[in-house]
């Protein structure tokens, strides 16, 4: 029989161990889980997750990834482009890039490749148009293994200042199962690299 008074400390430890081992499975699992969580917290497991690190690439360098490889070439301010400005006195912020599809199928989401960051007065985050440098036609479909030189256009309000340098982010996507449809799809659009490009003013002098 156990539980008599004046037991040595070793006996108490054994008693505790016995009590733990005889706990119901449910209580044991909860207890172990809470212990693991607490220990991970000590080692930073509960710290807020930092955002993904963005690689900085130089102009002209190819940043490889899925579903496209991208090399940023230049950034310009234009007053004319194949697309008409919504407001006649605004200007175009144009970014040149060579884009090559690395996915296994033609892609229509060309407007998702780049975004310009930290530029005041842009009418939209998404480019107003993307066109092929070779013939100025809209680039709404790109094909695997066929790299194309493209110009991405953003309209900037006339009242906003023209920066000297702009940050251009290259976006990527991941191919995974869409939990809603159950189908394989390109999702999780997120920036994966950036470049700082000097802005060349190519407007006609007024």
């Amino acid at each position: 029989m156990s539980g008599s008074e004046g037991e040595p400390s070793r006996g108490r430890a054994r008693k505790l161990a016995d009590r733990v081992l005889h706990l119901r499975a449910r209580h044991l699992v909860v207890g172990v889980g809470a212990l693991v969580l607490a220990v991970s917290g000590i080692f930073g497991g509960l710290a807020q997750m930092k955002g993904p690190r963005l690689y900085t690439v130089a102009a002209g360098a190819v940043h490889r990834g899925k579903p496209w490889d991208v090399a940023l070439t230049r950034a310009m301010v234009l007053d004319q482009a194949p697309l008409r400005l919504r407001n006649a006195r605004d200007r175009w912020i144009a970014v040149g890039a060579r884009v090559e599809i690395t996915a296994d199928e033609s892609r229509r989401d060309v407007a998702d490749v780049l975004q310009v960051v930290g530029v005041d007065g842009l009418l939209d985050k998404r480019p107003a148009d993307v066109y092929l440098l070779r013939d100025k036609a809209s680039a709404n479909l790109l094909h695997p293994d066929l790299g194309e030189d493209l110009i991405f256009l953003w309209e900037q309000a006339e009242t906003a200042a023209v920066p000297k340098t702009i940050e251009v982010q290259i976006f990527g996507k991941k191919q995974r199962i869409d939990t809603f449809s159950g189908r394989l799809d390109w999702m999780d659009k997120a920036p994966r690299a950036r470049a700082f490009l000097p802005l060349e003013d190519q407007r006609k002098p007024s």
Binding site: D104, E105, S106, A137, N140, L141, P144
Partner: peptide
């Protein structure tokens, strides 16, 4: 569309 020997799919051009 056309599919090549590597299984890649190319949609009809929109140019």
């Amino acid at each position: 569309s056309v599919r090549d020997a590597r299984g890649r799919t190319f949609l009809a051009t929109m140019r």
